[in-house]
Design a protein around this nucleic acid. Structure first.
Lengths: 115, 115
DNA sequence: TATAGTGATTTCCTAAAGGAAAGTGAATTA
DNA sequence: TAATTCACTTTCCTTTAGGAAATCACTATA
């Protein structure tokens, strides 16, 4: 009757992709995860390792990443007291996404400059 | 001298990831690519296949995706004239990212609901 | 005691993203 | 002739992201 020819099976992919975007969207979350993953654990080190990142944005993003259980904030009761951030094991599950995006970004840049 | 212990090699990953984010960031670009890839080629079909997508946003995103050579807009001089969108071959290079994000979204949702 | 560093917070601001709703103009179908 | 469809466009508005700069509490160091 009604000619419904819209392909709706794309929702099987669209929905989980949007769930993922809800967690890692924005300019800074993946860069912060990468920086912490590579060994930066102090607030200032993370900030300085990512050009353009301001303390306000870093503080906000770290809180969100903590809530999503991707990053752990630890207070080290030493003299002086230190605060370190490190990745939760759960953040490792993002590795395939990060590498896929790294690879694509590299070849995209090559493509753009070859023309 | 100066105790420089910031791990800067993360820029090797951060930079290409940010190049990728510049192309596919936002709530709608990947869903639109998925929908077109699965067979939706008409403006209205694409719009109706993605819940919440408004025509204004769809029109804007399609233009950007065209500029990035991910989607092709074709005018079919038929009676009536039709406009169809289809993926450029270059869009296929995004498949690893899309699948990585789909997989992550599925298991993330499982993780959230199990708790 | 003064200075510097650490890990932020606060205030103020702009720009971009996104949503709701209506409209448009050409063509088609009833 | 009227209604409908298609592919948008336009207007108006709210929300969110993000940036600049100053400030703050605490500790360490000179």
């Amino acid at each position: 009757m009604a000619k419904k020819k819209i392909y709706c099976e794309c929702l099987n992919t669209v929905k989980p992709v949007r769930d993922t975007l809800d967690v890692i969207s924005g300019k800074w979350k993946l860069p912060i995860i990468i920086s912490v993953g590579v060994g930066n654990s102090r607030f200032t080190d993370i900030q300085e390792s990512i050009p353009g990142l301001t303390p306000k944005v870093l503080a906000k993003e770290l809180k969100e990443l903590e809530q999503h259980q991707l990053i752990k904030r630890l207070i080290i009761e030493d003299y002086p007291v230190k605060i370190v951030y490190h990745l939760e094991p759960y953040a490792d599950t993002l590795t395939p996404i990060i590498y896929a995006m790294k690879d694509w970004g590299i070849s995209h840049r090559e493509k753009i400059f070859k023309k």
